[in-house]
Simulated scan of single mutants.
Amino acid sequence: MIDIHPDAARHAVIWLHGLGDSGAGLAPLVEALALPSELPIRHLLPDAPERPITINMGHKMRGWYDIKGFERPEDRADETEVRAACTQITTLLTRLEQEGFAPEHVVIAGFSQGGVIASFTALRHPTPLAGLLCMSTYLAAPDALLAELSDAARTLPICYMHGIYDDVVHLSMGWDAKQRLEAAGLAPQWHEYPMRHESCRPQLADVRAWLLARFAP
């Protein structure tokens, strides 16, 4: 895990990478945000374990969970593995709190598979967090959301971002997540960009602004 820990940091972001990537793969995105040095923020970029991925012919790669297919919601994310990953990130949140980072000063962010785990964790976390940022992603176990949504998550600042031309996680899957969150009484921000399954400069500017708003004095 990459742990960027500047002196006097009171805020933290947990960044969760996508399938086949690593924490190191997300580090350039964090650097590109060029967050102000006068607001020191700790960035934690954990690695998913290596596991066989069904849609990739069973080849092993870093992944938070297995994907059998995208046609049915139950195939998009192995629920047992999603819950195990959620436990891993919850443990990281507990560690941060023990080190002096209040939960309300911590954002969970993720891209693609990482966004699935970020949302699954944040929406069930029992104490208020600073925010949830999801990029090019969807919901795991969507039918369980209403029953498992924590009281703390009902006021959670949420931002979803998606590429209009995403051919990996189709835009409709992001819209489905947005609509399910709204049906649960939440109010996610929504941003679309003329891009595929990737990041772009306008999106990075929006990520930067959203994070700064979450950590404003």
Rank of each mutant, 00 (worst) to 15 (best):
Y138C: 00
R124Q: 14
P126M: 01
Y160V: 11
Y138T: 02
R180W: 06
E198H: 14
L132N: 09
W175F: 05
C134T: 12
P142K: 05
D143W: 03
L186M: 09
D166A: 07
L171E: 10
M195W: 10
C159R: 11
T137E: 03
P194G: 10
G163V: 05
R154M: 03
R180P: 04
A183R: 07
A184L: 02
V169R: 01
A141H: 00
D143P: 03
H170A: 07
A147I: 00
P202R: 13
I158E: 01
P202L: 14
A153N: 01
G174Y: 06
H162Y: 06
L132Y: 11
G185M: 11
L129Q: 09
M195R: 13
H197A: 14
H170R: 09
M195G: 11
G131Y: 08
L132K: 12
C134D: 03
L145G: 05
L146S: 15
A205E: 15
T127A: 10
Y160G: 06
A147S: 07
R180Y: 04
I158G: 05
R196S: 13
P128G: 09
L204Y: 13
A205H: 15
A184I: 03
M161E: 05
E192G: 07
Y160W: 08
G163E: 07
A177H: 02
T137P: 02
I164N: 04
W175A: 04
H162M: 03
L181R: 02
R201D: 15
L149W: 00
R154Q: 14
G163N: 05
L156A: 02
G163T: 06
C134I: 13
A205P: 08
C159L: 09
M135K: 05
Q203D: 15
P188S: 08
H170T: 05
A140M: 07
Y160E: 00
P126F: 04
D176P: 01
S172E: 14
H125N: 06
W190N: 08
P202T: 11
D151H: 04
M135S: 10
L156R: 02
A152R: 07
P157F: 06
P194E: 14
R196T: 13
E192C: 09
Y138N: 02
G174H: 04
E148C: 04
L156I: 06
L133E: 03
Y138F: 14
S199W: 15
P142A: 08
L132W: 10
V207L: 15
L171R: 11
Y165R: 12
Y160I: 10
E198N: 15
Y165H: 13
